[in-house]
């Protein structure tokens, strides 16, 4: 485990850990006098699941929203799939976003559309010339992958919390992203469903070979899914390591996450 010592590898193809797909250097973001991110440095490697821990209000969600450009950074360098985010505008930004999947905490399902239409929505916009038969098969495949085959023609309001999360995941995966961002994927779910969602995250990593950043407070989810964990405190990456490294940390603050 290292403390305040996240390696910098913006342009490095790390032979040991794999290609760097997300790299952040000295990221800063404030909302008025609230300095949420003060100096974030981290990297995510190809095929890696990185779990981000931290107290509420420490800017974990802000961090992943910066990655997709929903929130603009104040300072720092953010490189995603070898592209500098600060230099991307318009169509270039849209093209990069197609390679990034984002599972929102609430699922963010389009509640005026059926399950089928929710899945078709991103496809119709990204692949406008896609034949109807191909569209249908992609939708069915995506639903099958998350175990929602029988729910195709119902409205999102009729789905349970776990099913909504699965649908949100299916909608994200339908564009086959290279990077997945999960914003508290198990919040509000019972332990069994949480376990299912954690398994699904691992399956996604395996099947799609995605790199993921998982924001969570659920230590069981972190234990099951993390290849590596970082802990954010006071707007900086305070600690980094594997689940076991951090679980055996002597720092009482780190320990309090595992109690």
């Amino acid at each position: 485990m290292s403390t305040n010592a996240i390696p910098m590898a913006l342009e490095r193809d790390d032979k040991q850990n794999g290609l760097v797909v997300v790299a952040m250097e000295h990221l800063k973001k404030s909302f008025g006098n609230n300095h949420v991110l003060q100096d974030i440095n981290l990297v995510v490697h190809k095929g890696e699941n990185l779990v981000v821990l931290g107290k509420s209000g420490t800017g974990k969600s802000v961090l992943i929203k910066c990655i997709v450009g929903l929130i603009e950074l104040d300072e720092g360098k953010l490189v995603i799939l070898e592209q500098d985010m600060s230099a991307l505008k318009g169509n270039d930004l849209i093209e990069l976003r197609k390679k990034i999947g984002f599972l929102f905490q609430s699922g963010a399902l389009y509640d005026s559309m059926t399950v089928r239409e929710n899945l078709e929505f991103p496809l119709r916009r990204q692949l406008r010339s896609l034949p109807k038969a191909k569209l249908d098969s992609l939708v069915e495949e995506a639903l099958h992958n998350v175990g929602l085959d029988t729910s195709i023609d119902i409205m999102p309001a009729e789905l349970s919390g776990g099913m909504r999360k699965r649908l949100g995941l299916a909608r994200t995966l339908i564009l086959k992203p290279e990077i997945m961002l999960y914003d508290e994927p198990t919040t509000g779910l019972d332990p069994i469903t949480s376990k299912e969602i954690s398994s699904l995250i691992l399956e996604v990593q395996k099947i799609y070979n995605t790199s993921s950043i998982i924001i969570t407070h659920d230590m069981e989810c972190a234990r099951r899914t993390a290849n590596r964990i970082i802990v954010i405190k006071d707007g900086v990456c305070a600690a980094e390591g594997s689940y076991d490294d951090l679980a055996h940390s002597k720092d009482p603050w780190i320990q309090s996450f595992f109690e």
Partner: peptide
Amino acid sequence: VTEQIDAMQVSGTN
């Protein structure tokens, strides 16, 4: 409020 607009944006839709 339910982040549907953000979801559209991150899926590459304007």
